[in-house]
Amino acid sequence: MGEKFLRVNDLHVHFPTDDGLVKAVDGLSFDLEKGTTLGIVGESGSGKSVTSLAIMGLHRHSRARVSGEIWLDDVNLLEIEDEELRSLRGRKMAMIFQDPLSAMHPYYTVGKQLTEAITVHHKVSKADARRTVVDMLGRVGIPNPNRRFDQYPHEFSGGMRQRAMIAMALINDPELLIADEPTTALDVTVQAQILDLMRSLQDEFGSAIIMITHDLGVVAEIADDVLVMYGGKCVEYAELDDAFHQPDHPYTWGLMTSMPRLDRDRQERLVPVAGNPPSLINVPPGCAFHPRCAFREYSPLPCDSVVPELLQSYPKHDSRCHIPVPKRAELFSEQIAPKL
């Protein structure tokens, strides 16, 4: 068991708005070791991107109210000064954004933007910086890196741009890499290349990775641990194999049965999760998932008024549901597993 490298403890991110308080993240805790990958899964509005922005300190000087603790090694990121945070950001921790076209500056060449990522943190000559950048562009699989260095983002294709973003994030060998839907906008063929790339870079640098995605297939490919979010809260947190083979929360079940799968026989009919994702201004009382939950009747407690705690159901496997654990295991094996 390695050392916990990142520890997030009771993180809250709230946004006051005219319509009320939006609790985008509401009491989230997890930790991460070096060389491992945490997959955060959830639908739009579940708070997964807001979490990553909080770790990077990108809610500072906004309206967001952030509380809790985020420990990176022995530094609480929520308490340090801006200056100190800036020296960590991009060097010790880095982020890959979902949309590389809007995350890059259209007026500057790709090379210039990557060079800046180095010179902000290190005193190096221009020629050295260029060498490092060209080398990194080559390592992420961009052909002709020396020529590409002087091109603008619009001259790159989607996959190439995403590689350039990854190169920018990795240029200072960060120990923590947060990837927010890095492959969502890409074709499967390019996605496979990018995932392979991230895996091999992790082997090389031993970075810790947080992979934020809504695609369970991507999670199964790359993650060691899985955290499922719903309505700003963690509803299930487990090691990869457990999360897929013994999922323990009705929402996770719903995600699994609603997905057509290439590796199984074709189902006659998909089993969707009923209803719509909750509005964060008006999160349903009690368990946020209860209006969409197909298994409420098995709960001994009123799901619409009592908020379930995140409790350990199995070793290293937490979930947030009132239904007793043995009952959930039975429901899963009898009703859900045959549909998968």
Binding site: V188, E221, D241, D263
Partner: peptide, 13 residues
């Protein structure tokens, strides 16, 4: 190639 690139929700496959 397209089919082999589809990520499958089955760990360690």
């Amino acid at each position: 190639a397209l089919m082999s690139a589809v990520p499958v929700p089955e760990p360690r496959r």
